[in-house]
Design a protein around this nucleic acid. Structure first.
Lengths: 344, 344
DNA sequence: ATATATTACTAAATCGGTTTAGCAAATCAT
DNA sequence: ATGATTTGCTAAACCGATTTAGTAATATAT
């Protein structure tokens, strides 16, 4: 009662009384190269078709060292941002003849290490990774082992590893600029407490833009723990609103914005009247919040497709030495949440 | 500059001057069975560890016919409901020593067919599938081919295939009962226009509960297209509110609820004053909507874990003939959206 | 007529493991 | 002392493909 076993190349060969070599060669389109007669080519193709033969990829891959598998490690597959990336990578990979295995590191270094091992063991031809905080050494080692590798969403400026990311600096330049245009001055940033490059870049974009507008004295970067605790964010928002007279807040990530908006709702803070808000990435939440939420749109389609393309290039052309740094440009989607409301 | 090739069992064997058989046997814990001396066992384990050996799963699987891969086909991995399932399946599978490959059928029959083929070709040991509308014949065929298979979220009552689903009947029994308790009478249901069993069951739960409460004359099931079009849902809501004097609406799925709430917001309908609402499944959206949304909580953790357990059981114990029908019980999470507001 | 080239195919090695069958040496039984 | 058993290990087959090297039969060249 086990799984029915499939038709093998041997079955096809036997049915025609020829060698497996012949069948393999014909079905791989190398008939000419091996000078197989046209009549035989037809016979083999017909037999393969009628016997419903399809090659055992495991066997093929054992020989060839390729599995047509791509490993994708995100931090959390249940985060809509990453599951969207997963969907796009999956569909692009499929177009290119690859299948994607994905797993979630839960932002944990040990998990990341373990998952990389597991995936390499499964024989993936290459990896697309959202590196978690502190994973630089792991990624470096992986890169040095000459495994085709592309980072996505986040990158390490200290590493020569190809990546496909948002132009993060430009993203906060846009949001900050937008808030300034609206007439806000006391603009704060709520960020994660991490050294990860995408966060650093976003902070830099904010600070530079504030400086350029002569608002240096208002620069205020609040850092909260990656755990996204509601209590912590509530406390920070309380301080900003009641003590620091903050007019506008930029939430540096999607998750931060969702938790932040939840806090704001519970705190009975009115948006944009009491506080203007800008978020990152679209989310159904933003449409349904009582005020439509101004946010940065990341060209997800592009970022994920690019990452896949780069990786497959590396795998197939073996161009491991070529570094591709793909930055995609953000777009500002204005909503009501960032309007300037004149207060008494 | 290709990928560094890994340490093989042969390398370990050579380093000790023993056979690969010995190494294989020891590392698979069959030393006793093969009467390998304890000293040798220690030597082999040490060598394997120090050489950082880990077996090539492809090779192992070619011989054993097992890949330790599970295929998961959902309708849309970017739907938070399914990506949550994916995360849980992934983590349970990992505990059991399996890796998950997943892909999205986009609710399309041809895609489902194709994906099943692709995954089987990759040599997955079994499949967990969210079957799309009309996929009964495909699933039947798959089942008959003796591939370990578990359906999740949706099932076919006409098929003897194991599944792990919500007790869908109970879910609408709960929601409908809740609305009736609140004092609502004119309660409508917005469902998808499909013959899929989970939808049928949910409708049945609603209708039965209405009947039991003597509200038979108020039974009103509105069916909309699976495409989840905002225009269509808006039209339906308009009719319900303005023509049919509907007091309360049950959205039969998460996506319907999200789109529905969006429509409600755009239509300036007040919740729960003008219309009471109940939804399915938790969603960040529900917390941030101006009124907290009453909804059915599906024990996702349980549903997904069960599905994985059942599948691995089938794979490992070969108990293909044993059917497991796992129903998980829903829970009603009350919010403000379903309150009865006395109208003038 | 003999050497060379071409045609149409096949045998066998290989990938990296697992497993079956078996062998030599040591130990035990009689 | 001889046969039987146990101990500790290995050779070789196998999984299902790809690929290299080669062969027999025919055709062409000199």
């Amino acid at each position: 009662m086990a799984k029915e076993k499939k038709v093998s190349i041997k079955d096809v060969a036997n049915s025609l009384g020829v060698s497996t070599t012949l069948v393999s060669v014909v079905l791989n389109g190398k008939a000419r190269q091996f000078r197989i007669s046209e009549e035989m080519v037809r016979k083999v193709q017909d037999a393969a078709l009628s016997m419903n033969y399809s090659p055992n990829l495991i066997a093929r891959n054992l020989r060839g060292g390729k599995t047509q598998l791509i490993g994708l490690i995100v931090t959390d597959i249940s985060n809509p941002f990453y599951s969207s990336i997963a969907r796009i990578v999956e569909s692009r990979a499929e177009e290119l003849g690859y299948t994607v295995i994905f797993s979630s590191s839960q932002e944990d270094l040990n998990n990341t290490r373990r998952l990389i091992d597991v995936l390499l063991n499964k024989g993936v031809d290459g990896l697309i990774v959202v590196p978690c905080d502190g994973s630089e050494p792991v990624i470096r080692k992986l890169h040095e082992s000459n495994t085709p590798l592309v980072l996505i969403d986040r990158n390490f400026p200290t590493l020569d590893v190809s990546f496909s990311c948002l132009n993060n600096y430009r993203a906060t330049e846009l949001t900050t600029g937008h808030l300034i245009e609206q007439g806000h001055k006391n603009i704060a940033l709520i960020a994660y407490n991490t050294e990860m490059n995408h966060v650093i870049e976003r902070i830099r974009g904010y600070e530079d833009t504030m400086k350029k507008a002569g608002l240096e004295s208002y620069i205020n970067v609040e850092k909260v723990d990656l755990s996204n605790s509601k209590e912590e964010i509530k406390a920070v928002l309380g301080t900003l609103i009641h003590e620091k007279k903050t007019e506008a807040v930029i939430f540096l990530t999607n998750m931060l914005a969702i938790t932040g908006l939840y806090c704001i709702k519970e705190m009975n803070v009115k948006i944009p009247d009491d506080l203007a808000v800008v978020a990152f990435n679209r989310n159904d939440v933003f449409n349904l919040f009582y005020s439509s939420v101004t946010h940065i749109r990341q060209p997800l389609e592009r970022i994920a497709t690019e990452a896949t393309n780069i990786l497959v290039d590396k795998i197939e052309r073996g161009e491991l030495e070529v570094k591709t740094f793909a930055y995609s440009e953000p777009e500002l989607i204005p909503g009501d949440s960032s309007r300037k409301v004149i207060r008494n």
